[in-house]
Amino acid sequence: MARVRRVGKRWWVGAVGLLGLCVAAEVQPAYSQQSVAVRAGLVKGPLPAEDPTAAAWATASVSEFPMSPQVHWPVRITDVTAKSVKVRGLHDGTNVAILLEYSDPSEDPDDAAALEFMVGDTKAHFAHGQPMAQVEGGPVNIWYWKNKDGKGSDLGAKGFGTLKPHGHQDVKAKGVYQGGVWKVVFSRPLSTEHVAEDTQFKPGEFGSIAFAVWDGKKTESGQPKEKGSEKAISSWWYFRADAPPDYSPYMYALLAVGLALGFEMALVRRLKKGS
């Protein structure tokens, strides 16, 4: 009989252990942002806003996004050079820098890259904010860099054929070509006074971002392989400039541990007294 009781107790412990394993199985691994969002970490030192090869970029988390040919607009292309882009972001609380990195077999004057953002709270179609049949949608803000220009351009659009430079130019960009890879860094203040035209970054909040790349290699016709709407694109992904560290959740957790421990001790004491 005593043996049976011991076996029963082992079952009890085993069952609790199994339940523990089940709970552990329910604990999901940390959410990976690598394929859906660009996360710009907060740096204390100088921001590598004009140096795509700065060592500081190695500290930024990297996200990779697949690229497709632009097929939405009739002037399209079906095969593009850039199959994916690697993206990193950093900010210092005042300015934000975004590094775009992609393979390109040759350096050409017409090589170009761009970032696209929604403006304000109004959703926009990723294709240049093209108005929808039943919904107008909002404008988009495009940061554009072209190798031969050697600088960034701040553009806006609300539908195909409406792309134009903003009256103000807040965006800086610099590209470096090394070993078959373009590294292009874009930078701008997190917030600007042109809220109707520029995307505004609020640390800690997610916004939308899309990418475009043009391979400017000349074809036999003398024209760049990719130009205008013939380009590699992505649809919308997410971007977030990290908020400053917030330690309050640790404080709340510590308080909760203390309360739970107190409750537990009081309960056991009461039970012992009762028994």
Partner: peptide
């Protein structure tokens, strides 16, 4: 408690 008060990394 930490999980419910910490800001989420998920979009």
């Amino acid at each position: 408690t930490y999980g419910s008060t910490a800001s989420s990394d998920a979009p």
